[in-house]
Amino acid sequence: MLQQHPHEPSQLTAQEFEEAVKAVESMTLEQMQRLGMFEMFGNTNPQARQQTVELVHWLDQQVTEELIQQYIELAKRGNYTAMMALSCSTSKLH
């Protein structure tokens, strides 16, 4: 996985971030499946489960104060996905 994904995430501008969110929002489940977005999560293979744990850990590390602020700004502008992400993350804290 580390060969496929660099250690340092690329820095997206606010516009690039919004465009990426819109692209994912407009995808159907079938399109996501064709891109392999779910191949690790339903797998019973122990190696795939370990890779899933590592991926979730890596993703958790990507949530920075700057990223949260970007979501807040998007939510203020009416972005439903950002609102839901913020809502889900704050409900997990309580």
Rank of each mutant, 00 (worst) to 15 (best):
E54S: 11
L67G: 01
K76W: 08
T64G: 06
A23P: 00
W58D: 12
V56R: 03
L29G: 02
N79S: 10
Q33R: 11
N43A: 03
E66F: 05
M32R: 15
Y80F: 14
T44Y: 00
A23N: 10
M40W: 07
M37G: 02
F38T: 06
M27Q: 10
V56Q: 13
L67C: 01
F41I: 08
N45S: 10
N45D: 15
Q51I: 15
T52V: 15
V56D: 11
M40R: 12
Y71K: 09
I68C: 04
Q70D: 12
Q51K: 14
G42I: 02
M32K: 11
G36P: 05
E73D: 13
F38K: 05
G42K: 05
L67I: 01
A23I: 03
T44M: 00
L67A: 03
Y71W: 14
A48H: 09
L67N: 02
E73F: 07
E65S: 15
A48V: 05
M27V: 04
G78P: 06
L35R: 04
G42S: 13
F38W: 09
V24I: 08
Q47P: 00
E39Y: 04
E30C: 01
P46T: 12
S26R: 11
T81Y: 14
Q51T: 13
E25R: 12
A48P: 02
V24N: 04
Q62A: 04
M37P: 00
R77C: 03
G36W: 08
K76E: 15
E25I: 02
A82Q: 08
A48T: 03
A75Q: 14
I72M: 11
N45P: 06
E54Y: 01
S26W: 00
P46C: 09
L55G: 12
L55P: 07
L29K: 06
M32D: 06
Q47I: 11
K22E: 11
W58S: 12
F38G: 05
M27H: 07
V24D: 08
E25F: 02
L67P: 01
Q50Y: 13
L55Y: 15
M32W: 13
V63C: 09
M27P: 03
K22G: 00
L29T: 06
T64S: 15
Y80K: 09
L74V: 06
V53F: 04
T52I: 13
T28W: 04
G36V: 07
F41H: 04
A48E: 12
M40P: 01
